[in-house]
Nucleic acid binder design. Structure first.
Length: 424
RNA sequence: GUGGGCGUAGCUCAGUUUGGUAGAGCUCUGGAUUGUGGCUCCAGUGGUCGCGGGUUCAAGUCCCGUCGCUCACCCCA
């Protein structure tokens, strides 16, 4: 039996990778403009890290983690998300010294044991952003603006930003009680799942998809109606700033995030171009998470965005076409030319050109065809005729014009015509 | 965990109703054009029809089983 890749994972092949790199390049550029720096966190962690941060009763922790014992018997887990690791790292490396807002981003694979479908995989890639150390609503708004800016640059057509506020440490317990009281009379009409949620996490009743639950949820008290003055002011300021930046959004009082660490602002950006899994990214404030890992009180705001989903809707510009485009294809004919062309290729590459070539002594026709297929800007023909006359033939593949290059000074002459692209 | 759809050439798919020599387009290779790509035309390469069993003179096609992919529920990025 031939070994195949396992369920829910996939190879990202060279044809597709240009789009990924293009997307990642833009994310890096734009994050840099906002002062975010990359952090690389481990792929696996102590299992307790995720249970404690995401919440013991969340679906991710209860049934979706890849957890295993290593050879010494320690329980390890392949990371199902990135925030927990960033917070652990923040505390472990005492990044709160000296006091400042620490702005980080990461990119990489996450792992969740779920049934695969469109936009959902068992190994999937996320870009995450975390702004740590300020409770200012300006942080919330700025990070969301950064995302909108990124999406605009990536050519996304139809995205919707939804925001909500879940309240803080002080208002949340009171609201929870009010909500439970309001739910209780409806318990017999709510789905089995919501009956459990009523006990464990009543907020989740609000965003249940069951029709009868939706009906009831519509009239339940909402978090935004029960914010304390501080949280209400924070939420209003976030809205004011978003409006000032010209960012469109809607308030969705039924949006409850699936991870327990969120407080105050939460948000999601969805795309109507995606299937059932239409959330491109989601996040919000987590003002108390650092403390649960024995760090100092550190209000934070962050989000994660799904790369597979994002890449499927980006509209790359002309800059994508040059990403992998070779400058020059060396066509070589005959034994003597092989040695000469080898040296010429090495010389041109060391001067910054992207040089492709033939390895198998194919016909001229076939080598020219390859040069065309690979979208090379130029072809350099080296055969016995050229070696004898000391003149190489350089062909512009776009204009279909050719010029002669003196073998004695080929390097400078070619560089003169075929300038390397700025990125190289 | 529960449903629906689909597995035939490297890719996209026809052929399955009514069993009878394995097909098309794209790609690839060669030629028309002896050392010049793209366009056109001609020719060629390429398939244990997911896998296993059964019925039959005969199975891609019918029956049973099994594996995989995919979409949706759920959940989320």
């Amino acid at each position: 039996m031939r070994i195949k890749s396992i369920r829910g994972v996939k190879d990202i092949l060279p044809d597709e990778i240009a789009k990924w790199q293009w997307t990642e390049d833009w994310a890096r550029k734009i994050f840099r403009r906002y002062g975010f720096k990359e952090i690389r966190i481990p792929i696996f962690e102590d299992s307790r890290l995720f249970a404690r941060s995401l919440g013991e009763t969340t679906d991710v922790v209860e049934k979706e983690m890849y957890t295993f014992a290593d050879r010494s018997g320690d329980s390890l887990t392949l990371r199902p998300e990135g925030t927990a690791s960033v917070v652990r790292s923040y505390v472990e490396h005492k990044m709160h010294h000296p006091p400042s807002v620490v702005k980080l981003y990461y990119m990489g694979p996450m792992f969740r044991y779920e049934r695969p479908q469109a936009g959902r995989f068992r190994q999937f890639y996320q870009i995450g952003v975390e702004a740590m150390g300020s409770a200012s609503p300006a942080v919330d708004a700025e990070v969301m603006c950064m995302l909108v800016e990124l999406f605009k640059t990536l050519g996304l057509a139809d995205v919707q930003l939804q925001i909500n506020s879940l309240g803080d440490k002080e208002s949340r317990p009171q609201y929870r009680q009010i909500l439970q009281n309001a739910i209780q009379p409806h318990l017999t009409n709510l789905c089995a799942n919501c009956n459990q949620r009523y006990e464990k996490n009543p907020l989740r009743v609000l965003d249940c998809k069951e029709p009868q639950c939706k009906e009831i949820a519509r009239d339940l008290p909402k978090t935004v109606e029960h914010l304390n003055p501080e949280s209400r002011e924070h939420f209003e300021e976030v809205q004011t700033l978003l409006k000032a930046a010209g960012v469109d959004f809607t308030i969705n009082p039924l949006m409850v995030r699936g991870l327990d660490y969120y407080s105050r602002t939460t948000f999601e950006i969805a795309s109507s171009e995606l299937g059932a899994q239409n959330a491109l990214c989601g996040g919000g404030r987590y003002d108390y998470l650092v403390e649960t890992f024995d760090g100092p009180p550190t209000p934070c705001f962050g989000f994660a965005l799904g790369m597979e989903r994002l890449v499927s809707v980006v509209q790359p510009g002309a800059d994508l076409e040059t990403l992998d485009r070779p400058d020059l294809y060396i066509v070589s004919l005959g034994e003597q030319a092989l040695l000469a062309s080898f040296k010429i290729a090495e010389e041109l590459r060391s001067r910054g050109l992207r040089v492709e070539r033939d390895y198998d002594g194919s016909s001229l026709k076939s080598q020219m065809r390859k040069a065309n297929q690979k979208n090379c800007r130029f072809a350099l023909i080296i055969g016995d005729n050229e070696l004898e006359s000391g003149k190489l033939v350089l062909k512009n593949m776009v204009e279909s014009e050719q010029t002669e290059i003196a073998l004695a000074s080929f390097s400078d002459e070619i560089l003169n015509v075929v300038a390397p692209l700025p990125d190289d």
